[in-house]
Structures are given as structure tokens and as C-alpha cells.
Design a protein around this nucleic acid. Structure first.
Lengths: 190, 190
DNA sequence: CAAATAACTTAAGGTACCTTAAGAGGGTGT
DNA sequence: ACACCCTCTTAAGGTACCTTAAGTTATTTG
């Protein structure tokens, strides 16, 4: 059951048998039905999540009530409201399951304990954060330089599996356009 | 001369005397005149930079020749084309000095060596990457939910010093709007 | 210090994308 | 099996922001 999360970690660091036991003792597995809110804005963001199976979405609701999708996480992705998890601030975003999902969660105290007792994880999370950072930076670049249509095609090319698992409305809110406009963009093709 | 970069590091990790010596032996100080291109697209991105004084700007030029500012870095910031530095890919972005600047550069081999010989730096760069990631994520959120005018005010509020050091045109290209439109936004006030 | 160059502004006309509305199709729950 | 709700689509009218152009003020350069 922990195979997938352990091989995710093994992509970047090698754990001894004892270190593996420490790690697995600090994470908790959970299965959550579809459309469950795992985190709500203004709540304390207590966990970092690894998606074993299923799909999650984090989104922001602005002062006008408009929803913007921050990120999707399908199998083998990590997700949470990172700023609030790391800085002990109330969450700014919502996190919900798109479909029934099995996740592993690490609480903040356990996250700190993990980094203390197995410092190798500093390296693991450095690489995770590095990748997340460069991915977000690329997204900013695309938002600044591409049209809505180009961003849609880039999204589908980059994340074909996610494009299949989520609704058009959710993709539109990730791209920063209305579902109506996405619909007109998609019409010409096929 | 290395005081500022060392106290930047001391914000997150404590170095012994020997570790400090290792670190300073791996970085090189440079003073660069204004408007110097430190990195160009398609070049190999060989260095990570810390800004001791002055100001740098990284930008992207898209297929239509339009320039988008990725980030500014003033005193005490780290900057490079992170994706290309870490993944040994040709640079996607340009990096230039806005004014005469003193920087410290770390080459890729020295960066790897630093992480190997002083593993504490894994923690330092984890925190650096974490902060960069959450900052970019907030920028994506603002790009998706705020109007151009709101983004401009948010930028000035968040980075008052940068707003003073760079041109309006550069701010416009960071916000994803034209200088002409920024000008009309600024007119009503004062 | 002049001359060139770049930054900033103003304004008119244009376009990418939004808002509102309404209808068709597909799940979901009772 | 019906009603309900949500997604997706289409279309008409609206707006935020762009393009082009031209003038003014800084800043750089010879």
C-alpha cells in the first residue's frame, strides 16, 4: 500500500530500512469520497498530502466569489496550501477531492520531526519545492505570453491525464478564462 | 564584503567556521555595470546569483518578440534561470543588470559540491525554494483574480523598493500589461 | 552641451475575452 | 421514473485591455 509513495521518494533519495519505518510511522493513509472538502479557507492547514489514487483540486475564491483553480493533483502528486502549511497561517485556499481518492497525510509536527530525524528529507523536499517553483514560474510565463487558446493547448499537452479527469469548467478556472469562452475555443477543432 | 550573503544564510541555518570557509571558497564576487546581459536565452545557465547590491531583472522574449519580466532581484535576493540551472537545459530567459550591481555567483559544480560537503545547505535551499514557490503561486492567484489596476497596487505595496528602482515599462511587463495601459491606470491617482 | 535615445503620457480605434441568457445533454438522488 | 442539478454549448452585447501613433519629458551618449 505504501509502495507508490515510497517509490516517489526513491526518485530522489535512498532510505535505509529504519528510515523507511520512521517515514511510514509518520504518515496516515485515508480514503475520501468524491467532492469532499479536505481543507477550507480560514481553517488551519494542518497537513501535507500525497495522492495515492484519485484526483484533488485546490482553488481560491476571491472577493467577488470567483473561483480560480490553483492546481490539480492526481496520482503521485503532492498537494496542500503550501504557504499556510509552512508558515502556520490560516488557509487561503480550498482543497477538495474531484473523485474518490486515497491519500497519505503528514501533519505539521510529523513533517518537522521527519526533517529532524531523517535530514535526507531536506533534500527530498528541496527537490520537490524546486520542481514546484519552476513549474509555477513557467505557468506565470505562459499566462503573460500566450493567448487563452494557446494556454489551453499547452495544458492539454502537458497534463493529458489531468485533462481527462477534470471538467472543462475546472480547466477554464485553471487557465483564467470563463467556461463559455473555453467552449468557443474548443469548437473549431475535431 | 561577504557579511550580507552570510547573514542571508544565517536566517535559516547556522554555519560553523569551517563551513563558512567552504562556502566562501565556492562563491565568486563580481561587480557588473548597468544594462549588462549576464545570461541570454539558449546559453548554458552556469550560475546561481546572489545580489549584494544593485538590481537585476530576468525576462522572457516570446515568439512575437514580446518581453515579459519574470522577476526582479534587488539587494539580498537570489536569482537565476532556475529551471535551466538545475536541469542543465539551455536558458529560456535573459538576465540583466538594471543598475551597477555587485553579485556573488556559484557555479553548478560548486553548487553540487556545496550540497555534498555541507548538507545543511539542502535545508537552506529547501527554504529558499519553498519561499520562491509560494511567492510564484500567490502571483498566479493574483493574475487569475485581480484586475490590472489591483495587481499594480499589490505590486507597489509588496515591493515598494523595487517599484522605486525599476522603470514603469518594466513593471508593466511584470504585470502582463502594456506601458500605455499602466499609464492610464496611474493617471487618476495623485 | 548638444543630439540621440528611451521613458512616459494621451488619445482614438480595435480585439480578446466577459456577462448574461437560454437550451440540450448527462448524472444523481428520492 | 421523475425532478433536479450541473456541465457544456451557442450567441448577443459589453468591457478591459491592446495597437498604433504622436507628443513630451528624462536619460544616456558622443
Amino acid at each position: 500500500m505504501t509502495d507508490r509513495i515510497l517509490s516517489n521518494i526513491a526518485k530522489h533519495i535512498q532510505l535505509s530500512e529504519e528510515e523507511t519505518i520512521v517515514f511510514t510511522s509518520l504518515v496516515v493513509r485515508k480514503t475520501v469520497t468524491k467532492k469532499t472538502l479536505i481543507l477550507q479557507a480560514d481553517e488551519d492547514c494542518r497537513y501535507l498530502y500525497y495522492v495515492h489514487s484519485g484526483a484533488l483540486r485546490s482553488y481560491y475564491i476571491d472577493k467577488d466569489g470567483k473561483e480560480s483553480t490553483i492546481m490539480f493533483a492526481i496520482a503521485d502528486w503532492w498537494i496542500t496550501d503550501m504557504y499556510c502549511f509552512l508558515n502556520r497561517k490560516p488557509a487561503m485556499t480550498y482543497l477538495e477531492t474531484i473523485e474518490e481518492s486515497t491519500i497519505f497525510q503528514i501533519s505539521r509536527p510529523n513533517f518537522d520531526l521527519l526533517l529532524e530525524t531523517v535530514p535526507k528529507f531536506e533534500r527530498f523536499f528541496r527537490i520537490l519545492m524546486q520542481n514546484a517553483y519552476t513549474r509555477e514560474q513557467l505557468r506565470v510565463m505562459e499566462n503573460l505570453s500566450l493567448t487563452a487558446e494557446e494556454r489551453y493547448h499547452s495544458f492539454v499537452r502537458k497534463y493529458p491525464q489531468i485533462a481527462r479527469q477534470v471538467t472543462k469548467k475546472q480547466i477554464a478556472s485553471y487557465l483564467g478564462i470563463t467556461p463559455e469562452f473555453l467552449s468557443t475555443l474548443r469548437k473549431p477543432e475535431i
